[in-house]
Design a protein around this nucleic acid. Sequence first.
RNA 1: CGGGGAGUAGCGCAGUUUGGUAGCGCACCUGCUUUGGGAGCAGGGGGUCGGGGGUUCAAGUCCCCCCUCCCCGACCA
Length: 566
Amino acid sequence: MRMTRLAFKTQREAPADAEAVSHQLLVRAGYIRRLASGVYSFLPLGFRVLTKLSEIVRAELDAGGAQELLLPALHPIEMWQQTGRLDTMSDVLMTVEAKGGTFVLGPTHEEAVIATITPDLESYRDLPVTVYQIQTKFRDEARPRFGLMRTREFIMADAYSFDASAVGMKDSYTQMYKACVNIFDRLGLPYVPVEADSGAIGGDVNHEFMVPSPIGEDHFAQCGGCGYAANIEAAKRGEARRIPSDSPVLEMKTHATPGAASIKDVVEFFRSEGYEIDESSVMKTLAFKDVRDDVVLILVPGDREVRVPSGLTPLSDADFDSNSFLFKGFMGPMGMQDQGVRVLADYSIYERQSWFTGANLEDHHVSNAVLGRDFTVDEVGSFAIVSEGDPCPNCGNVLSLVRSAEVGHTFQLGLAYSNKIPSATFKAEDGTDQKFWMGCYGIGVSRLPAAIAEHFHDENGLRWPKSVAPYQLEILTITPARSPEVVAFADGVYEDLTSLGIEVLYDDRDLGPGVKFADADLIGIPTIVTIGQRGLANGVVEVKDRFSGERTEVGVPDLVSYLSKL
RNA sequence: CGGGGAGUAGCGCAGUUUGGUAGCGCACCUGCUUUGGGAGCAGGGGGUCGGGGGUUCAAGUCCCCCCUCCCCGACCA
């Protein structure tokens, strides 16, 4: 492509709304342009990157045995009512009123793919099948961020597997998991598969593919010892070292703490009374109910957050009213088993001998509550969100937290969707109707350019890996307007390389050399070939590797064969 | 949804305090010069100053309402 014909323009300054480096560079280099908050156009250069990414995804999913299809973005709203996700995902759903009724703009395609493909899956003989689509999806994000990282309209590759059994589902999962590994390997991005929480998609076993990144919106915990890695929402910690209890412990004492309903208030109150106390010395007691509506208390130190186990929901105000022994803001574990309440404590309960906590009496707290003496717990486990430095649940080494961007997510859905869609059945070998065992596998295609740009850029601009670069090679001419021989030679090289099937971007613009060098660095094509009078006079051309910055002088006669072998 | 900030040419910004012909840099157009790391001179084009209402002889500037965008948080296939 001759740059004089390319619809693009670089900008010296990034728009003020671009915060992330990747966002700034992608806009400045002419890859993307914002149309609305969280809505981006891909300009010709950007679209070529997107196409490269799609092709890699397509090739690896095909190799993994999946078949591509295309699903609508418009989903009849009834489908979403049937699975209950009209409610559970209402925060992000966008709808369209049309003549035929109301449609959901698909944020993900489980409903649509089941309706589309299961009529062809009538028998166990038809299984297993994995299908996928690469297309635009819509999520009405509360806060679009970081350019392409989180947008309201985005492109995803989603594969869906259908199996006759749990064992089959696991096989399909393994296949697609490998396909994801292959895809991210080809991108050259450092990624970490982590154990994850399944969120609104549902299902059981699942993994996220994380790329450590300063503009990531997730964190995962990683163990340097055994390789354990899990999303912070799912990560567990190991048991803490117990503090030896050789110092004298005072008796538990009740204090009037009027109005001190928060950890902060409690700390402030006891400090003003002369006690040595900080947030970590207060036992935070939070109340939940389980699926049978029984009350469950979870204890964590005041400076930590509870990681709510699945199946538990926080108590509403009405729940507090109907459980008169619970005083919101003044709860503690003492005597709770007598009320039929299960008490769960995080391992960090072993980190201190005695605690400040609620007295189970309006406007009162206690000091010196001691586990085993003043209260007991039903279970000690990992109930707090992990922090930097917590012990690994597998090997006890130290966990560290890594900021990261989620670029892929694979789920074993099991029967989660089949159960909600009665018509989604096949005939089993014994003639009975059976439900599909499903899996789903997503890759955030339009998010990848941001992740890649963020990881590979340098101070001069973008640096694309060869696998996704919009062009493999850029030819740049110096002072073309005054040197016909430069133009003639460069034209020839451009023609030769193009006819060899190499994707070449040819900067034939009549601009100062400084501008052209700067643009080449900004655009980030992997190999930059500089053709100028000075070099030609010596019979050489300069070839620069954008990644290493290394420049090589190549003799004119060898140039095309040299370049075609890069 | 809570807190903070911002909307003036394609991009970056000044002008708003104290109302009086809408400016600068980049980009764009014309000409000349220049040319191996973001050139110079001269000339030129481009604006619903986010929108609506109000005050005033006069509003980018003052008042009221609304919209949009960005950052932190909440939320998050």
